[in-house]
Design a protein around this nucleic acid. Structure first.
Lengths: 384, 384
DNA sequence: TGTCTATATTTGTCTAGACATTTGGAGACA
DNA sequence: TGTCTCCAAATGTCTAGACAAATATAGACA
């Protein structure tokens, strides 16, 4: 029985705190065990009850002990204890299921491991993104998951402000100049398979509809498109870019919409227009599809359309969209796992995880059945 | 000079804590100001110095105060404060735009005011919800926004574990037994106007399709339905309940789907079936719509369908859905604002905010135009 | 058997006071 | 002027005790 030393420079209550902690950590007192009552401890160590309470207050505050009036003081269950580490996640938007699923995946892994997730929404704004990373670092987060707004060129500003030791995982797009781990989807392969599918349907004139901005994910999709065509000995058409924008405040329009459709008209109003379009994301595919249907074209008979991302809306578009699905939830899971590994191991290793994508074939690329009058089945696909 | 009330059920030290917090938050004591010495406060409030210290301990622990031996107790500089700036949000799911928009709204307000949002996903599980609230409290969050899984009956378990002083805002549904502020949508009025709209289209046999579970929000919608019918001197039909479920892991199916459709067949296979359905949410409306279309019925000609929530998918359903829109983003904004008010004022006032809902009329309830062959316009509605 | 009641136990709140330690300033001293 | 000492003021530590409130238990009672 360790006794307390009143002559020590360390106050009695801290000595008692240490003793209690040792008892718990060494397993003498197991989780959910009851501690001796305060008066008993006071008598045992020959100190007053107030000092015992002061010692216990610290452990209660740390979540190691739990007091229940009338019953006693108990060692907290391990499951209820938390290492109480904070992890920040910064995302640029929240307008489709991609990021919500990433969020779900990351949250579930982090919570199971006793971390808390601080959610930051940068609204696609670089300044805001930088400010939030700054604030999260001041807050003392143990790690960061970043879905960056910053482009490769702008990543210098990021690396300036990032604390060198901060565990960091970047998702969806790459910032190679940053010393960070990456979790991305197989964009090249997904686009490649989508275009291969269009080729297999007999299409030869396939245009790529892109975006004015080109994060690495979009560039990779364009590369996949070009690669598939080159292997088929077909020259890629010049890329067409469409601007997309969001209604920032309107609640019921959670989707990005195409704001400028003239390039599509120019593309189609030529002697030999393309018979199929590969759109680098589903929002573009939606805008293009609505526009060409309004022009009186039939999808896929006159024009086949394929997209990328498999947003929640894809199976419900006017013509259900063939698109490339990303493992959204899995991206979040892997990013969280990678971050935890880094934190726990203490090493600052950089890893890169490329998750497989999957081509989901729907009506917009001309299945054997012609345009169906009947809407898509109730529940998209069964789980596989 | 506020005096403490020894007769109050709230202990003296908590009363003093509240007083000190108010002084700081109202700006009477600025950051880096020195507080009156402990003995002076003890004399002023006629309590012992131990109680004063107990009160201050809380604020020191929260990082709001800083004690320096020999010098005094000081209000912490805002930049040095951190733990007190955390706000927790616990949501049950993340499968449509309702909660993502709430999240966006709450995050933007909180961040502008210097708070950080900890995101917790309870997966619709009461145990998990309770555990997360427990953890957030231990983490020392300054407030909590809760989209509860717990029903009114289960709210006792919540109130047991909630720290009485914790600022708390409950959204979407009510838990009246909880001493908390609420932000909800006008469910009764929304349902009332939706059914009135069906009546105005000439429908007389209108059924209500509900859920097995009945949180207050759903109950209110049913009340609105019944009220509109009663005012039209029409007896409500017996409520039909459909079970809905989620594919928990399947990424690309972010929507709930109806799992049991037999009750709908029973409802329609009678001599005089209803000519219109009011569904208490849009997921049910989607499942029902797909089912009746597959049966060969025409919407809205044979059966009009109205929903509630205006999920992102609503304008893109096989027949664009008439539904009641909630001000999702605004719910998040108001909840955050209410929480900040409570934290800053230090008072534990309960307020209830009911936000207006809006009927969005689309094709599923029979507009002048018959079922259009052309899909809905590109961008749902222009902002207004 | 089941329920109510009194009692003991335990933590929660609060008091009054003592002495220790740290800090900063006033005054003595070189 | 610079330095040292001493003191007052403030927080830190600790005691001894009181009563309140919550909980569990044993025993009385129907």
């Amino acid at each position: 029985m360790a006794a307390l030393d009143p002559a020590s420079p360390q106050p009695l209550y801290l000595q008692l705190t240490d003793y209690l902690r040792r008892q718990i950590n060494s397993g003498v007192w197991q989780p959910s065990d009851r501690l001796p009552p305060e008066v008993e401890l006071a008598a045992q160590f020959d100190i007053s009850r107030g000092t015992v309470r002061q010692a216990m207050d610290l452990l209660v505050n740390q979540g190691l002990l739990q007091r229940i009036p009338g019953k006693g003081t108990f060692v907290t269950n391990i499951s209820a204890r938390s290492r109480s580490q904070l992890i920040g996640i910064v995302v640029p938007y929240l307008r489709d299921s991609l990021i919500t699923e990433v969020l779900r995946g990351a949250e579930s892994v982090l919570r199971r491991n006793g971390y808390n997730l601080i959610f930051c929404h940068s609204e696609g704004n670089l300044q805001l993104e930088l400010a939030q990373i700054e604030q999260l670092q001041r807050e003392g987060v143990g790690g960061l998951i970043l879905f960056p707004v910053a482009t490769v060129d702008e990543s210098a500003r990021l690396s300036q402000m990032l604390r060198p030791q901060l565990p960091l995982v970047i998702i969806d797009r790459r910032l190679p100049q940053l010393a960070a781990s990456h979790v991305v989807a197989d964009n090249v392969g997904g686009a490649y398979r989508a275009v291969q599918h269009l080729l297999a349907q007999g299409h030869r004139r396939i245009a790529c509809i892109s975006l004015p901005e080109r994060p690495t994910s979009i560039e990779e999709r364009i590369r996949g498109y070009e690669q598939a065509l080159r292997e088929a000995k077909i020259l890629p058409l010049a890329a067409v870019s469409l601007a997309i924008g969001a209604h920032p405040s309107r609640d019921s329009v959670p989707y990005y919409t195409v704001t400028e459709l003239a390039p599509i008209d120019q593309l189609l109003d030529v002697g030999e227009p393309p018979s199929a379009l590969f759109c680098v994301n589903d929002f573009i595919a939606l805008g293009v599809m609505q526009h060409v249907l309004a022009r009186g074209l039939r999808v896929p008979n006159d024009l086949a359309i394929a997209g990328f991302d498999d947003i929640a809306l894809a199976p419900y578009m006017p013509v259900p969209l063939t698109t490339v699905a990303q493992p959204k939830y899995e991206i979040g899971v892997q990013a969280a796992q990678l971050l935890i590994d880094q934190i726990v191991s203490g090493t600052h290793q950089q890893r890169e995880i490329v998750l497989p994508t999957e081509l989901v074939i729907r009506a917009s690329t001309g299945l054997p059945t012609p345009v169906a009058a009947v809407p898509p089945p109730a529940v998209a696909q069964p789980p596989h």
